[in-house]
Amino acid sequence: MSGGFATKLTAFFLFSSTILVHAQQPSSGSPQAVPLDSVLSVKPDSAVKPPPPLFDTIRYRFIGDGNFARGNVNRSLVVLRAELTFSGPAINLATNPRFTYGKQSGILAERDSYIDLFLDVFKKRRTYAFALGALETSNLRRIDLRQMAGAGVGYRVVRTKTNDLSLTNAILYESTNFREIATVSTIRNSFRVKGKHSMIQDKIRINHLTFLQPALNDFSNLRWNTIISFELPLNKWVTLRTSFENSYESVVEATRKRNDSRITFGVSVGNK
């Protein structure tokens, strides 16, 4: 190999090495490579927060009431109730089912069932909206099935640690299938007063609930219902109670009376 060729070959390799070194060095204006782990890592402050839960509080109470008499008139009455409330930031869902069973002188008098569902929107505010639906059967009033559905607004008059009082007004569609007379369908205005009051450092509680429901297309068709209970809490979970209930319906079958009243004694268990 001649000396001139070797010199040229050496110069070529030196020139190529210089170009390769400069190519591997990033320029100041070119974009820099970002490590994969830095791309995947997310700062805690920038993490997406999950939406708030629909319900964050559950309150419940189960009630057993009764009234028994023996002698000239043998009477037995059992009333089973439940109160369930699912509360959230914007929506409340509540149901108050009950079942009543009673005999008088060995003859079945009451075998009544009732279930409802209340959907309250923004109930934590002073004024709120709600929708409701209810199903009812009654051997006492000879009703095979009563259906109700409607919506309205509520207003919280007082809400303190010892007193809670609210007023509601709703428009309801009602259909009642009696055993003998023809089905009665009507539109009602339903006005309700509901209150809970505690006294003597919560040693005595008074609960009351009143419905006044005239039919808008026939004012002679009127219903009302009132229940008042006096309660003595034994501890956080158990409460002794007595209640008085009065109900009235102007449209009844020929063999039924319009007004009914009863007094019961019982106990409730729950965190409500």
Rank of each mutant, 00 (worst) to 15 (best):
F86Q: 07
F86N: 07
S87P: 04
G88D: 08
G88F: 01
P89A: 14
A90I: 15
A90L: 15
A90M: 15
I91L: 14
I91R: 08
N92G: 15
L93D: 01
A94R: 14
A94F: 05
A94T: 14
A94W: 04
T95R: 05
T95C: 07
N96E: 14
N96M: 12
P97V: 13
P97H: 12
R98M: 15
F99K: 06
T100L: 10
T100I: 13
T100S: 07
Y101E: 00
K103H: 08
K103F: 07
K103P: 00
Q104N: 14
S105T: 14
G106Y: 12
I107F: 10
E110C: 01
R111I: 04
D112P: 05
D112H: 04
S113Q: 09
S113N: 08
I115S: 02
L117H: 02
F118H: 12
V121L: 14
V121D: 05
V121K: 04
F122L: 11
F122K: 11
K123I: 02
K124D: 10
K124H: 09
K124G: 13
R125G: 09
R125I: 03
R126H: 11
T127L: 12
T127Y: 05
Y128C: 04
F130A: 01
F130D: 00
F130I: 02
L132G: 00
G133E: 04
G133R: 00
G133F: 02
G133N: 00
G133C: 02
G133T: 03
A134T: 03
A134F: 03
A134C: 02
A134G: 05
A134W: 00
L135T: 04
L135V: 09
L135E: 00
S138R: 07
S138G: 12
N139V: 09
N139R: 12
L140S: 06
L140C: 03
L140P: 00
R141G: 02
R142A: 02
R142L: 02
R142Q: 06
D144G: 07
L145V: 08
Q147N: 06
M148Y: 01
A149Q: 02
A149K: 00
A149P: 01
A149R: 03
A149E: 01
G150E: 05
G150F: 03
G150H: 07
G150K: 05
A151H: 01
A151G: 13
G152H: 06
G154V: 06
Y155W: 14
R156K: 15
R156P: 05
V158E: 10
R159D: 14
R159I: 06
T160W: 11
K161H: 11
T162I: 10
T162M: 11
L165D: 08
L167W: 11
T168W: 07
T168D: 06
N169G: 12
A170Q: 08
I171G: 13
I171T: 14
L172H: 10
Y173E: 08
Y173T: 10
E174Q: 15
S175G: 11
T176I: 14
T176D: 09
N177V: 09
N177I: 11
N177M: 11
F178Q: 09
F178Y: 15
F178G: 07
F178R: 09
F178C: 10
R179L: 13
R179V: 13
E180A: 08
E180L: 11
A182E: 08
T183Q: 12
V184S: 10
T186N: 11
R188W: 00
N189Y: 05
N189E: 06
